[in-house]
Design a protein around this nucleic acid. Structure first.
Ligand SMILES: [Mn+2]
Ligand SMILES: [Mn+2]
Ligand SMILES: [Zn+2]
Ligand SMILES: [Zn+2]
Lengths: 140, 140
DNA sequence: ATAATAAATGAGAATAATTCTCAACTAGGG
DNA sequence: CCCTAGTTGAGAATTATTCTCATTTATTAT
């Protein structure tokens, strides 16, 4: 059974078409999607799907640690399917979001555990600024 | 002239009592405050202060890079006066927020600049999980 | 397959944070 | 002191998200 469905079932939740659709949408897109975007996509599979169900399901998937929400500085949240963990670079000019990974990230987190005895279970890391394309036109 | 007021003035904004109060509130508290909390405090100085002004002023101070907003997973934002930059550890159990600083943080940011040619101007870094006190009672 | 049942859903109302509107007010320059 | 552009307060408006509840459905047991 596919990842995602497995965890839902294991935790005793029903595998409804809506849940399958939301799950599949997020997993296959591989991008950061707003609730509206997800819902629009889901409606192509389940035309009667209600928006509330999308909200409920995303909450559920977050509980189960299958998705994370990210704050891109917009008024609404975005969600993404949890894969290898990474941080985000958000360009304030063009809005582009780049995923970022570094060995220092791992060191930082070990640091947190050792020095603060703090056990990290989720990360919300966004570095905001200007991407290479946009930085030039600003002042340099 | 005090920090904050200086930047406001330099940018051509008027130094109203409301702006002074909001500024002073955030600076002196040194903590993360919600808009409501700030507004309550401000009203002890300016009883007629309107909530909209608090929102407007916080936006303004953010523009001027004097405050940052942080997302503590609650439904509303929190603000803090910008000092030496740091990251946050947020305990999902007791809600405690600890500030965190590390040499790796500096390295990671240099990393971002070199490898991605990305110029960081603001950070939103929250590591969520369990603090030492709360981690014990969970499973260990 | 059928029935029983708890869980899940959809529609729309309700809530809560934030933004907007606009007439009245005021800081600050001259 | 006067002028004026900038600022404010009150409340309406907007927007994202949550809630309510009657109806439907996935799952398990018969
Ligand atoms: Mn991502
Ligand atoms: Mn802080
Ligand atoms: Zn850019
Ligand atoms: Zn704790």
């Amino acid at each position: 059974m596919k990842a995602g469905l497995r965890e839902l079932k294991r935790a005793g939740f029903k595998l409804t078409p809506q849940r399958r659709a939301i799950l599949e949408t997020l997993k296959s897109s591989g991008k950061h999607m707003s609730v509206e975007e997800i819902h629009e996509k889901v409606k192509t599979k389940c035309p009667h799907a209600g928006l509330a169900t999308t909200y409920r399901t995303l909450d559920l998937l977050k509980e189960l640690n299958l998705v994370t929400d990210i704050n891109l500085g917009e008024e609404h949240k975005h969600y993404e399917w949890k894969r290898r963990h990474h941080y985000h670079l958000v360009c304030l000019e063009c809005g582009d979001v780049v995923e970022f990974r570094s060995n220092f990230a791992i060191k930082i987190e070990k640091n947190v555990l050792k020095d603060y005895d703090f056990e990290i279970t989720d990360r919300h890391v966004e570095f905001c600024g200007y991407c290479s394309r946009c930085a030039g036109g600003r002042e340099g």
